[in-house]
Design a protein around this nucleic acid. Structure first.
Lengths: 252, 252
DNA sequence: CCAAAACGAGAGCGGCGCTCCTGTTTCTGA
DNA sequence: TCAGAAACAGGAGCGCCGCTCTCGTTTTGG
């Protein structure tokens, strides 16, 4: 491409960055925009065809550039996929956090259901991206360190509701003992996440179960396991998620 | 397939059929053996490399035949994958049923945990096959009718425990009302599966939630979501699964 | 102002799923 | 019994794919 590289045209869906990214020279700016354009096109291709149909060559074609040029921006297909994974985690996390913020002041159970619904709705609207992060891990792919922080955002929104309920003394936690091994595990976790001691081992354990349960529900629905089984998806989800909330001590 | 169709489960790698498969002529027999060999090799390749690394050409190479010859036995890569999916469902289902049978006479909760453990253990020992059936749907999402019956086997083993507990009057079901829409859904399901009315709507609903919860636990463990979170996997699983059992009325 | 770095294009490698054609082997029934 | 039908294996080939290497150009920074 020429000097004042396309860039401006680029985004059939991408582009629209510019604001707040006015650093560096022409090349640096073009790089940011092209990187974004590639990711946007990849996301679009993901949405229509699924993860393993994602083709660097197809993206290059749509961008009117040689397929080899893509490798200036992503060292491999896996690296592009990883970038999409991080974006997906962040997008889902933002959706959960938005629901949490929007429900401020409401009763704990309302907020709980709101955040859970946000997770499910995001999944329904981003099926392939959901599959990318909560489905079968791609072969030989190891989650880089960059993914752990974004991955935590959604669940931390839920944790906050539980912690709040306990700090306000309105929680009805299950008063069951847990084995010593689990107790130690939970102590470490509580320490790492800065969760107060008022959230007991039983609740901590239940919280993780609930976390897996929530995504089990969403995954089963998205991945087709509920086909022919659950007809009333919305009602069923709300009801199940309310039960999950009770199991971690959130009062009705 | 032929009259006294194979069914002899094939060897772990291939061949070794012979017994009980004396139907038809040379060609029919060769077809059965080659079909089994292809599937065995595919399973092996699946175990080492993952689902989307499965290559018909590689299988053909290992079988010393032209890649085009494979298409005499499986019309496409997807069809081979579907066969593997069915086998995986059946294998998992058999593991669950074995655990159910082996625990006959024990208390309901013991049987419950045994079957759940069988599911998890099978998953740990067949990670890629598990991912094939409970992970992201691969072939652009379509589950042929042949998969629904095998897919039901594992969960039906769990359902049997719950039904037995209710019929014996030892269950402690959650006595909560469910919305009318869900109630109708559960009535249909109860009818289709032949579940007695004594298993109420609340338990039916909880059962499906529990089902999703169990596989959510296994999936999270297998797909790496518990990395750095849950250290004591065995203890945590047993504990969580016991809680799930209680939530569907199984007494301690 | 010029060397170094970044870049885009093109050719090419090996592998893939899948199809078509050809020649051979087995099966079937008049 | 024996020819036609059907099933089969091999080979060549098409259009993809991810990825690499080279080469000429453009931008950058000392």
């Amino acid at each position: 491409m020429g000097p004042a590289v396309g860039a401006a045209s680029v985004g059939s869906t991408a582009a629209a960055i510019s604001v707040g990214t006015t650093g560096g020279g022409i090349r640096e700016r073009a790089r940011r925009e092209l990187t974004a354009a590639i990711k946007a096109l990849a996301r679009q291709q993901l949405a229509t065809s699924g993860a393993d149909c994602l083709s660097l060559r197809a993206i290059a074609r749509e961008l009117d550039m040689a397929s080899s040029a893509i490798y200036r921006y992503f060292a491999s297909r896996d690296e592009l996929l990883t970038a999409l994974v991080i974006d997906a985690y962040n997008d889902l996390g933002a959706a959960a956090e938005d629901a949490l913020a929007a429900s401020a002041g409401q009763p704990a159970m309302s907020r709980w259901v709101s955040v859970c619904r946000a997770v499910r709705t995001w999944g329904l609207n981003h099926q392939h991206e959901y599959g990318l992060i909560y489905g079968t891990p791609v072969p030989g792919y190891r989650a880089p360190r960059d993914t752990v922080a974004p991955a935590g955002r959604a669940v931390l929104a839920l944790v906050e509701i539980i912690v709040n309920a306990h700090e306000q003394g309105i929680a009805r936690p299950p008063n069951e003992a847990v084995p010593a091994a689990i107790s130690a595990n939970m102590a470490r976790l509580r320490n790492e996440l800065g969760i107060p001691l008022i959230v007991g081992d039983g609740v901590m354990t239940a919280m993780i179960s609930m976390w897996a349960g929530l995504f089990g529900l969403v995954s089963f629905e998205l991945f087709g396991q509920f086909h022919g089984i659950v007809d009333v998806r919305d009602d069923f989800f709300d009801h199940s998620v309310t039960r999950l909330g009770r199991s971690v001590g959130i009062p009705d």
